[in-house]
Computed example of a mutant assay.
Amino acid sequence: MELTWHGHSTWHVTVGDTDLLIDPFFDNPKTSLEPSDVDDPDYLLLTHAHADHIGDAGEFGDATVVATPELAGYVEDELGLDEAIAGMGMNIGGTVECGDAYVTMHRSDHTNGAQTSYEYDVGMPVGFVVSDTKPTQVSDEESETFYHAGDTALMTEMREVIGPYLEPDAVAVPIGDHFTMGPSQAAIAVDWLDADVAFPMHYDTFPPIEQDPADFEREVEATGSDAEVHALDGDETVDLTETLY
């Protein structure tokens, strides 16, 4: 599994021959790319409807949208995505097969909204667990699993459900504070998730969320977690297999 961070909460995940793009928003200072510079993904995973998470979704019209049914309908109507490709609505707790990847949706603790001239119910905000094997209660030590927490506060589901049952090897957690967790609570999340690798995201995009990722790394160490913190440069790619093994 290959993971590329394009700044903010935008991740490109490659599992086998399948490419997934999460929360496309390239108007951020960590990336030098435009949407047109990015190879078209097979799947477009959207955590919620805030503009800094779906701002460039309309640029990837050939991808299958994976989102709550409400949000899939919204991007179809408002962003011009064709009905046939916007139709993979799923919901919290579900797992769908996306090419060589399995995508499980879990809620996040955040708000949601769509700023248009119409009232939209865009569903709950979510996070995604992406794995190269279908999640079961039988642990698979050879599987690789990445958890994109979305915009979220610290929540006990990380400790009670996502960590022990979905078993993410690598996690991307927001550290910007103000709108999401800050470094301290994000570090607790990493510890609860029992991850091997932690990536900070959703920081330094706007003045209210400016952070030094070194503070996050110190907070992770303070929890006693063994997770390795990797603060990536924008557009940097890591091979999860090499990182884990």
Rank of each mutant, 00 (worst) to 15 (best):
T4M: 07
S9T: 12
H12P: 03
H12M: 13
I22K: 06
D27G: 01
L33A: 15
E34P: 12
D39V: 06
D39T: 05
P41Q: 04
P41S: 02
L44F: 07
A49G: 10
G61Q: 13
V65M: 06
V75M: 05
E76Y: 00
D77T: 14
D82S: 03
E83H: 10
A86T: 09
G87N: 13
G89I: 11
T95M: 00
E97H: 10
C98F: 00
G99P: 01
Y102S: 04
Y102C: 01
Y102H: 14
S108H: 02
D109Y: 11
Y118V: 15
P125F: 01
P125D: 04
V126G: 02
G127A: 11
V129N: 08
V130H: 05
D132S: 04
P135E: 08
Q137R: 15
E144N: 07
Y147E: 05
T156I: 11
P164L: 10
Y165K: 13
L166I: 05
D169W: 01
G182H: 09
S184H: 14
S184P: 07
S184D: 14
Q185H: 13
Q185D: 15
W192T: 13
V197T: 15
Y203T: 11
D204R: 15
D204K: 10
F206I: 15
P207M: 02
P208K: 08
F216N: 11
V220D: 01
E221C: 02
A222G: 06
G224W: 13
S225Y: 01
S225K: 00
V229C: 06
A231N: 08
D233M: 15
T237N: 02
D239R: 14
E242F: 12
L244H: 09
L244K: 02
